[in-house]
């Protein structure tokens, strides 16, 4: 299986791999830092609702990553 882009919000994309959902985004400020992280189906739906929902998902995701000891601002995916 490969990750398929389900929704491209022109800067943030929601991807699907079977039943698993992912969000692809630039987590960097002055420096580009592309990431792909797993999200729930509910979060995927929220992210696909538009930029406001996508940012809400990214905030929650960042908190989860920090809690897991992962730097959410460092790249983990190719550009």
């Amino acid at each position: 299986m490969t990750r398929e882009v389900v929704c491209d919000l022109d800067g943030v994309a929601v991807l699907r791999d079977g039943s698993a959902w992912f969000i692809r985004y630039d987590a960097g400020a002055h420096q580009i830092a592309m990431r792909e992280d797993g999200i729930s189906a509910e979060e995927a739906a929220l992210a696909m609702s538009g930029p406001e929902g996508a940012v809400e998902v990214l905030f929650a995701l960042q908190q989860r990553l920090i809690a897991a000891g992962i730097n959410p601002y460092a790249a983990n995916a190719p550009e």
Partner: peptide
Amino acid sequence: VRIQPKAPAGKIGFTETWVL
């Protein structure tokens, strides 16, 4: 201004972009 490794592919930024 932004300084980047290569030219942007399209729109820069999602909800905002950071500049100098």
